[in-house]
Design a protein around this nucleic acid. Structure first.
Lengths: 196, 196
DNA sequence: GTCTATATTTGGATAGAC
DNA sequence: GTCTATCCAAATATAGAC
């Protein structure tokens, strides 16, 4: 009788190739834009025909969804690795800087995760759940400061994404808007202090 | 001998059809996204074959450029119709509201004019000049208030587009972010006062 | 699991008749 | 100025051999 091994080498290889495909997809998205991604190019990049990709993903849509999920997983990892201190104000400032760096280091990823401008793509509900979770951390931190009003969090996200957006749209690779971050954070907290 | 008429009815008709095509293009862009625009659909919408559109525009690119120009013309018209008062602060508040309304009343137009996310499209230099001009008005108004630092204008645009962006991306058709505008403007000017 | 072959669709663009 | 006919390219996706 045959003995089934504890490791499934075939499944491991499959998973590794899948990851390789996704990594190549990120590279292509960075090079020629998220919507410029094509299965032909992607296949060529990993050394196979476009058709062979269907052994790993059901459709192009499924690839976008996997990228979306992976992007949020990386985002959450980084957010959860964030170490808080006693100085909550300083934590917010540092958190904002890290958020901005995360966005600017890969504009294609920013577009996929935060802008939803890719035509016809909707993340699956399980992937979308990650996106929802990603706001739990700042929401909790505002609570820790005694701020319960959800509008404060909304204003905060608008301020940060506004800077990121202008930076990407109007000065890609530069720092015309990103260098305004500290001032923007000051402005925000001055306002918050005044409200209380 | 033939007498040349002062009106060129053929040219007028040509111009009218051109305008009709652009209007149809805006509608399609609103319906299925800016990048979803196709010459086939556009032709069908105005009652002709896609190929016939080439009598009016050299390429699809030229259509995008005409839309870009038209969008900024409408934007500038509205900005120039803006009536100022003695209360500059109130003028900024009203101007911000009008800007936001302009953006939200047509997200596809917002994407074309302010986000540059349409793959491979660059406006012609003459069209782009309109975009540059559009910042002259707020720049001058800040000067009128004694503010010369260009970073102030950049922070201002980031604040407004951040609200617009979040509104369009995460609550289309709603007011979750647009209703925060007055508070955001207050926050901005509180900060400006403190700087001086 | 990857390939060849192929289907199917869709898109932008040109040539030439009328 | 609009049409028919056509081209060409690119894209997603399926079937079946190996």
């Amino acid at each position: 009788m045959s003995v089934s091994p504890t490791r499934d080498r075939r499944a491991e290889r499959h998973e590794a190739t899948r990851a390789e495909i996704l990594e190549a997809a990120w590279e292509l998205a960075r090079e020629q834009g998220l919507s410029g991604l094509s299965l032909r190019d992607l296949g060529r990049k990993v050394g196979m025909r476009a058709q062979s990709l269907y052994s790993y993903f059901d459709s192009k849509h499924a690839i976008y969804d996997a990228l979306f999920r992976e992007g949020y997983e990386r985002f959450l990892e980084r957010r959860e690795a964030f170490e808080t201190t006693d100085d909550r104000r300083a934590d917010f400032r540092r958190g904002a800087r890290e958020f901005m760096e995360f966005c600017l280091e890969d504009p294609a990823r920013y577009q996929l995760l935060f802008q939803r401008t890719i035509p016809g793509f909707e993340p699956s509900s399980s992937s979308y759940a990650l996106a929802v979770r990603s706001l739990d951390v700042p929401r909790q931190r505002f609570r820790d400061m005694g701020v319960e009003d959800p509008a404060v969090l909304d204003l905060w996200t608008a301020l940060l994404t506004g800077l990121v957006d202008q930076q990407i749209s109007n000065d890609p690779g530069g720092d015309r808007w990103s260098r305004l971050l500290d001032e923007a954070v000051d402005m925000f907290f001055e306002h918050l202090d005044k409200e209380k």
